[in-house]
Write a protein that binds this DNA or RNA. Structure first.
Length: 621
RNA sequence: GUCCCGGUAGCUCAGCUGGAUAGAGCAGCGGACUUCUAAUCCGCAGGUCGAAGGUUCGAAUCCUUCCCGGGAUGCCA
């Protein structure tokens, strides 16, 4: 596919080509310079200055003991840009010593041709490494709610980016399927069954209700009782409150007993637990599928799957002197963190840090993770610093081959309501994810009907579904990960600006042109030459060439919003091109063929990028 | 108290390893549709980048201190 080229390079990144030439020129101009030299080549912000610029002269000025402009002059004397750009002159030097570069149209054509492959410039590595991505993390007997949205959407996007980069990707959904809260629900269900209820038709909504009821029952109202005593509200209130506390402690005792039978594998208990598990997971995985998130049964790694290894793990830490006793509990101290990491309670029970440390060990040593990413709420920041530190102290972050795994908490901010407080329903409950999706799809449907009234109902529904899901996901992905954002249907479903629908529309427009060309019998353009003439064509070409670098950067920084920003740039560059550069309406056959290729290539990059983020793509809308 | 994360235009947000006059969208104003889908494009207006010091040829970006907002802080997960 790659033909021998005048530049003799395999890259498609003009910046890399320029860097190479600049570094060579700097070495030649300053042969006595010690240490490394950096070409400091970046794309120009303002196109009036050029396409690229080198800022090396300013940095070198001091080291060479010269004025930066003189340094720049010496560099361009030695600078050979043949085949890449117009020869630099004194006029290329601007300001304190910027060297401005304008690329040759032929170079852009050549590089675009090299981008125009099925891989779109992203070559798989010779020996792929393994990344384990923690995502989703639902809890038994609970619906997916906004809290799971980001963990699922961002986690899946990060996983997809690494798949795209050719890594081995292992998704792990750390399902909250163990411990006292679950035992409470099991206990309640068993009580209901004993009372003659039929549990076979129970759904997740029922479980959710029972979960809340069980929580309420076991919670007790010790706080209320204290208040009553403090304010001396009266003996009657006090007695009632005492009774409630008492019954709560009885309910709690029953739940604790149930936890014991759950842990010891009692048959009936295990059966009820399994039913809760199946009902929850069926519903949640359905929601994941609707979200276009690749989270399935095989990715579920519940807390329960660690239950057999925690005692031995803790013993291992004790034996090696890593864990120490403190007030009856066991802790691991991590350098740089004041708060010790609690791994066993004074009553002998394990904590979530214990399970997570076991998780690190499994992910590194059994699953072979070179990189572990945890896509979890930012509030867990301290927890993960502790877990990572403890696991590292214990040597659990070292692979069998001796390499050290990289551990990262890809923390994300909260989803806020219009009132700038965490998003809740009017009654103060978590918003169910399915309700959120339903409303987005319903609203999208209204707009689709408005914009494109001729569509058949079935197709309209399909489009509305994709647009609604894309709107929600794109909003979640497009902001900086660590920041909170305000959830607004109106803003995310707007069809202008940096939104999912705008990107889908841009792709649809690329497909419209190509389809129309095929229908009109225009052929042969796929292998025609690419000519970059108009400013909009050049801007589009430069944007297209950035794609592989952007995907790599997203992987390095674990920041999907960079890809969003890029795709938005690409969509606007294409829209501008689309308005200003007629494709099928033009009469020059070569220009038409070249522009068709640009449309097609843009469409493929857009579609590849959208899929890499986990967004649905439409042919029409 | 300690630690973590934020603070950029009226609103919602970008700003890559420090680089030229800090960029988008919305809202406001003014233009462009017998369409390659106007779900779009072009233009105008709008900012002491929370504050003050410091480093640097050059700071929204790095360092220090402070202010404001959010969060986390040993036996829940």
């Amino acid at each position: 596919m790659t033909e021998p080229s005048p530049t003799g390079a395999a890259t498609i990144d003009p910046g890399a080509l320029l860097s190479e030439r600049f570094e060579r020129a700097i070495r030649a101009a300053f042969p006595d310079l010690q240490g490394s030299v950096s070409a400091m080549v970046t794309p120009s912000r303002q196109s009036e200055h050029g396409d690229f610029q080198s800022n090396a002269a300013m940095a070198l000025g001091k080291r060479a003991g010269m004025k930066p402009r003189d340094v720049a002059l010496k560099i361009i004397e030695k600078l050979d840009l043949s085949g890449i750009a117009e020869a630099p002159t004194e006029a290329s030097i601007a300001g304190p010593g910027f060297i401005n570069i304008r690329l040759k149209a032929e170079l852009l054509s050549e590089l675009l041709g090299r981008l125009d492959t099925p891989e779109l410039g992203i070559e798989p590595p010779a020996s792929p490494r393994t990344i384990v991505v923690d995502l989703c993390g639902v809890n038994l007997a609970k619906q997916m709610h906004v809290g799971h949205l980001r963990a699922t959407v961002i986690g899946d996007a990060i996983a997809r980016v690494f798949e795209r980069l050719g890594w081995n990707v292992v998704r792990q959904s750390h399902v909250g399927d163990w411990g006292l809260p679950i035992a409470m629900v099991v206990q309640k269900l068993i009580e209901l069954e004993d009372a003659g209820e039929d549990l076979s038709s129970i759904g997740l909504d029922d479980l959710n209700r029972i979960y809340r009821a069980a929580q309420g029952e076991c919670k007790g109202e010790t706080k209320a009782l204290e208040t009553i005593r403090t304010f001396n509200t009266g003996p009657k209130a006090e007695i009632e409150a005492e009774l409630r506390v008492e019954s709560a402690s009885e309910a709690l005792d029953r739940a604790k007993a149930r936890l014991v039978s759950l842990q010891s594998g009692d048959e009936r208990t295990a059966g009820v637990w399994k039913r809760i598990y199946d009902v929850t997971m069926r519903a949640c995985l359905q929601t994941c599928a609707r979200l276009h998130a690749n989270v399935t049964d095989e990715h579920s790694a519940g807390e329960s799957t660690y239950r057999g290894e925690l005692a031995a793990l803790v013993q291992d830490l004790v034996d090696r002197g890593i864990a120490e006793e403190s007030d009856g509990a066991l802790v691991v101290r991590v350098e740089g963190i004041k708060a010790p990491t609690l791994i066993r309670k004074s009553d002998g029970g394990f904590l979530y840090a214990t399970t997570d440390i076991a998780g690190v060990r499994r992910r590194v040593q059994n699953l072979g993770g070179d990189v572990l990413v945890y896509c979890v709420d930012a509030r867990q920041g301290l927890h993960f610093r502790q877990v990572f530190g403890a696991a590292r102290r214990a040597g659990y972050t070292t692979k069998a081959n001796g390499t050290e795994a990289r551990l990262a908490h890809a923390a994300f901010g909260m989803v806020m309501g219009e009132d700038n407080t965490p998003l809740k329903t009017r009654s103060g409950e978590n918003v169910k994810l399915t309700d959120l999706l339903d409303e987005a799809v319903q609203r999208a449907g209204v707009t689709v009907a408005e914009k494109n009234p001729d569509l058949a109902a079935e197709e309209r529904a399909k489009i509305a579904e994709a647009v609604g899901i894309a709107a929600i996901k794109y909003t979640d992905l497009s902001g900086e990960r660590a920041k909170d954002y305000v959830f607004s249907f109106d803003r995310m479903l707007a069809f202008e600006g940096n939104t999912g629908p705008y990107l889908l529309y841009a792709f649809v427009r690329t497909q419209g042109v190509v389809r129309k060309a095929r229908e009109g019998g225009v052929t042969g353009w796929e292998s025609s030459g690419l000519t970059i003439g108009e400013a909009q064509e050049k801007a589009l070409a430069l944007t297209l060439l950035r794609y592989p670098g952007v995907v790599r950067a997203v992987g390095e920084h674990l920041e999907p919003h960079r890809l969003c920003a890029y795709l938005y740039d690409l969509a606007t560059a294409y829209s501008s091109f689309y308005e200003n550069c007629p494709v099928l309406r033009g009469d020059d056959e070569a220009v038409r063929a070249s522009r068709l290729r640009l449309c097609d290539l843009t469409g493929r990059v857009l579609s590849d990028g959208l899929r890499t983020l986990g967004l649905p793509v439409l042919e029409r809308m």
